[in-house]
């Protein structure tokens, strides 16, 4: 299979990897770049476990061809916070009990981040809409929505400073 060099800005750093034309962005992230935080739940863009942010938009990386990310800015769960300084969404997902099995969590957080990056005062409906494509089978979504609301408030006060 012919391979091409994929160049992108991944979590703020330029990376280059040889990928095949039929590789998905999810394959490239998980298999070639070792970023297994992004999960594969269905491979068909139906569950949102593979959600990442590409050029500011939340996308299902399992149905994005890897080469479509050429020169793009790509953010994954590994790039948004550190143990010392978690992203507000990571902080609130932990504190509000929004995480059970954790398999949907990275995708869920990335969908929420794409929303909050543009809108730090979202309504409950906007939050539901933003994560409508992310299936969670454990939590019933309530604590996830509460966590996103709380993260939005944290980000508002951070921006206010």
């Amino acid at each position: 299979m012919a391979k091409t060099v994929l160049k992108m800005i991944l979590n703020g750093k330029p990376v280059e990897r040889l990928v095949s034309f039929d590789d998905t962005l999810l394959d490239a992230l998980r298999e070639d770049l070792g970023l297994t935080g992004t999960k594969k739940g269905c491979g068909k863009g139906e569950c949102g476990a593979c959600t990442i942010i590409m050029n500011g938009k939340a996308v299902n990386s399992c149905i994005v061809p890897a080469l479509q990310a050429m020169d793009a800015a790509v953010e994954t769960i590994e790039g948004i916070g550190t143990v010392e300084k978690l992203h507000p969404l990571q902080e609130t997902f932990v504190d509000y009990g929004a995480i059970q099995c954790g398999f949907c969590t990275p995708g869920m957080i990335m969908s929420a981040k794409a929303l909050l990056d543009k809108n730090v005062v979202p309504s409950r409906e906007e939050i539901k809409e933003a994560i409508a494509g992310n299936v969670c089978r454990c939590t019933g979504y309530l604590k996830i929505e509460e966590a996103i609301m709380a993260a939005a408030e944290m980000m508002q006060s951070q921006q206010g400073k």
Binding site: I77, E78, V83, V94, D95, G102
Partner: peptide, 14 residues
């Protein structure tokens, strides 16, 4: 704080 939650929030859980 749940023992597994930070790892899971960071995408570091295996």
């Amino acid at each position: 704080r749940k023992l597994d939650s930070v790892e899971k929030a960071m995408g570091a859980a295996t």
